[in-house]
Design a protein around this nucleic acid. Sequence first.
DNA 1: ACCATTTTTGTAAACGGTTGCGCAGCCGTG
DNA 2: CACGGCTGCGCAACCGTTTACAAAAATGGT
Lengths: 368, 368
Amino acid sequence: MAEDRNGVRGPELPPRHVGLKQLAEHLGLSVATVSRVLNRSAAANRISTRTQDLVWAAAQAMHYEPNHLARALRRKKTYTMGVMVPEISEGYAASVLSGIEGALLQSGYFYFVVSHHHRADLLREYPRMLLSRGVEGLIAIDTPLEQHLPIPVVAVSGHQRMENVTNLELDHTAAVRMALTHLHGLGHRRIAFIKGQAFSSDTHDRWSAIEQIAQELGVAIDPRLCVQLEGTEAGSDSGYRAAVRLLEWRVPFTAIFAFNDHSAIGAIACLKEHGLEIPRDVSVVGFDDIPSAQTNHPSLTTVRQPLRSMGETAANALLRYIEPPEPPYPEQPHPEPPQKAHKEMPETLIVKPDFVIRNSTAPASDKV
Amino acid sequence: MAEDRNGVRGPELPPRHVGLKQLAEHLGLSVATVSRVLNRSAAANRISTRTQDLVWAAAQAMHYEPNHLARALRRKKTYTMGVMVPEISEGYAASVLSGIEGALLQSGYFYFVVSHHHRADLLREYPRMLLSRGVEGLIAIDTPLEQHLPIPVVAVSGHQRMENVTNLELDHTAAVRMALTHLHGLGHRRIAFIKGQAFSSDTHDRWSAIEQIAQELGVAIDPRLCVQLEGTEAGSDSGYRAAVRLLEWRVPFTAIFAFNDHSAIGAIACLKEHGLEIPRDVSVVGFDDIPSAQTNHPSLTTVRQPLRSMGETAANALLRYIEPPEPPYPEQPHPEPPQKAHKEMPETLIVKPDFVIRNSTAPASDKV
DNA sequence: ACCATTTTTGTAAACGGTTGCGCAGCCGTG
DNA sequence: CACGGCTGCGCAACCGTTTACAAAAATGGT
């Protein structure tokens, strides 16, 4: 790796990698000067314009790239965030990630992604490893936080109130109101519910909202029409199995409100196999609006979580909290006092869902 | 951020963050000794067992976590990789990512993900930024490489032969052979093709394979039955539009071989709207086997790319190339010579596809 | 021509670890 | 008792940058 520092094979032409040292040497200047110029440091006004130009030119010519590690070590600023997700492949996390990525890279931040698979040891270890690597903030997606962390955290779909963490939550009440109002308006009164797995952080809040809104609308919640998802994988199978259990009770219902689109799709598959037609016999409402929601047959009426923009929001919230005053250039001769170090972290950020009506819901029938 | 190094508010109890320095001080030892013990460095045999125990105990007690940046700077080893993808959300990349993640983290590596969106400037900048951050290797997913990089690269679905890069390719010939043999066996002779976008690195190779296999099977390729995907977004819309163009030609066909599942799903939606039934009137074969392939209606017969395992393979190939001899512990008193620094990088790694037959294909009809 | 400034640049100490080398003791031996 | 070798550890340089401080050079005033 470091075998030919002085070019073993060729006549010593371009150094393996130029550092400030090489640059300075080549220019006949000190590293300090070069560094100051390249950083547009405050003290750079005091350096002659001629020298500055020379430095820039040389930097270009020699393809100087600062060593981020050294810089981060010295400045105590890594421009790096950590992101924890249950797993990557699963659509939900990927969409949020994509939003995070957009916002972070735009601000010059990179990020590490780690996926615990709800494994307790990883949930404990990863935050420490990330800290050790100097992340300045953490975004936890659908991930339970254990210890208090010495850096700001934004928890997407998180619910625990802790110091230093901002929870970014969907407005479940609004979401559920839209869904149930829709069903209620179509005449549905006997509604079955597929609850989320216990480990999913949204499960509890969503259910509370359901209880509240159901009461508002005067819709009874029949315990025999409630099933809970089982298993830890993300596919639609668990929704299928949930529907099987629902049918076994033989309690009639005209609609299902599923915990997410995956389970809705699974449930629909199951109902169809049992000779029921969707939405004629049973209406189904999903949640999330994953891509397959619109390609499914029938296409899914569902509550849309604006996942991408939730990711952006999370990242931006974190950035706001971390970033020192000046964005890229501190040019402006601000006469104001240097501004508070960083904004306060709000305890909760609420994001509004959308409701998209497709073909899996229709007026209630009495078939089932 | 560093305001209360000595605990402004409380009586100086636990230092903000313990470093080797604090540890050593507390133990009455030199940082050198502590470092050697904690690293199980070769020179640690020479340190008394008693001291070692003390060091470990103190490290535990004081929650010492080494600063990864400092360590990386000195050792010139960052345990970090870079991953470039077109975009994250799109299923393909996400699945591969998940495989990469598994393999890398298992080996103690973290990774940065960046997504160029086929933007030329990003394709140029990102590799440099990643280098600057000290990544030891790069995985490029469906991403054209421009410059030669001074680190090993594995290109998933990459095709350019360059120094330092290993291409991880699907065996397109095998894939196409399975798909076309299947259709041919069902009696299909007039087969339409949806080609990939020009920027997708698989497009060209896959098409070559199609030409080859079609000839082998004696299936004619009618230019009027070939359309190319347009647009840069990943959804199924472009497949829909492709099917529209296909129908406009009014040249009869009994099957479609789509470039990927997304476009297959879009095409199916379009055909259905035009009163065609799948697979009775037209059979459709997809490619990739994304999750919606099995929940789609009808479920998709498709070529499966083992995306997750391709990610794993890519990561492991990179690791094999980078890792110095010893995995975690160099315990064994190897008498052999210290082994070649690293394995040669093969030019290409081929991965075999699977073929999964579902409900979007059936014997040829003459309806269209 | 000389001193007080004001430019312009250099010196060196960090940042938090790793590591080559060497210095004390202690032991056994001739 | 002098000497060589081992054991157990510390000194100090180094990784590539940033930055407080100071020095050198240039400028201006008298």
